[in-house]
Computed example of a mutant assay.
Amino acid sequence: MSVASPDTDVLVSFRGVQKSYDGENLIVKHLDLDIRRGEFLTLLGPSGSGKTTCLMMLAGFETPTAGEIRLDGKLLNRVPPHKRNIGMVFQNYALFPHMTVGENLAYPLKIRKLPAAEVDAKVKRALGMVKLDKFANRYPGQMSGGQQQRVALARALVFEPQLVLMDEPLGALDKQLREHMQLEIKHIHENLGVTVVYVTHDQSEALTMSDRVAVFDKGEIQQIDPAETLYEAPVNSFVAGFIGESNAISGTIEHVDGDFCQARLTGGGSVSARAVCVRQAGQPTTLSIRPERVMLGERAVGCANRFDATIAEFIYLGDHLRLRLDFAGNSGFMVKVPVPEVDPAWQVGNRLSIGWRAEDLRALDPLAA
């Protein structure tokens, strides 16, 4: 997929980039991608989708099999990693255990032969940025995982690189600390304006932090957009299923009229939907609807698509309830209901009206069996 930008303010460009390790199978198939100066771009996808390989090629730890990678117009293909002036943050921190925090941060500055006074000033500023001002004389082994990750982040930023690459940097942290660090990294990025390329397989992390997200699958970018667009307007079944939660219903297109279509459900009944990946009658389709877009009971009256469903299960999640419903041959249909809107009379086995707007249902490519 080509994702080249007409924007002249491009910092990184991939052109026709491919990567194979065995000469036969392409891990990255044909990548054209522009990364804008100052943006936070996340490469998101399942294991083996090609996202980390792209990051490693940009860092210089892997060489493209074909194509070109440029940083600020300069061809990078044969530039060794230590000469690219790129900051890196890894999941395992990669700190020197025999050096203090201050020495770890000073190291990239000293190899660039900066004067001692400038090294001290930059180290102090970087420690302040990650709220570790009083930890300069500690050793990494004397710090928590979250503190070590802050040191790794400060070390990647201390020499003021144009570009910082982050490979699953929060994967080793517990959920609460990970969510806190997501916001910290986002705020540091906003304050510094540095360009960040971030790799994760955690879609909520990608949605929280990014200006744009590139969703990878099988060595190709399936869609690249701001988080809200990815969630509200996925371009295919893979993106709809990978970003957030989605109900997938099988059907066949009956007719297409402009931006909308009519589809016959495999389990019976007909629906109106937004035509995304369908062009003509007879095409198989997977219809996608987000759980929070489904109306229940009286709210379903007047919806373009309306069915009777049976309550199969209640799943309590604190601020909301998930209802698993059976309708038209679909036994795993999920609906999210805020707790204040839950009817205390609902019980497993009850019949319930459900409905949704045609514009909230997307007719996409059929999911592989």
Rank of each mutant, 00 (worst) to 15 (best):
P80T: 07
K122P: 08
G269K: 02
Q223S: 06
F61Q: 09
Y198S: 02
D34A: 11
A121R: 15
E254I: 08
L230T: 01
Q149T: 12
A368F: 10
E313S: 13
Q262G: 07
T42F: 03
T285C: 11
E168T: 12
I27W: 02
A300W: 04
L367T: 02
R125A: 15
N77T: 12
R293Q: 14
Q182S: 13
H30K: 15
I185L: 12
P366N: 10
D319E: 15
R322C: 13
Q142K: 13
G219F: 01
G193P: 05
L361F: 03
V294T: 03
E24A: 12
R150N: 15
Q162P: 14
G329A: 09
R37K: 15
R324H: 15
I185P: 02
C303W: 00
Q176H: 11
E232C: 03
V158W: 00
S5K: 09
A172Y: 04
D9M: 08
T200V: 06
P338N: 14
V256T: 05
Y139K: 13
A345P: 05
G171S: 14
V196K: 01
A154D: 05
H30F: 12
V151P: 01
E118F: 07
K218W: 05
S49H: 04
A126V: 06
D259F: 11
V278C: 09
Q18T: 12
G23T: 06
K122S: 14
V339A: 15
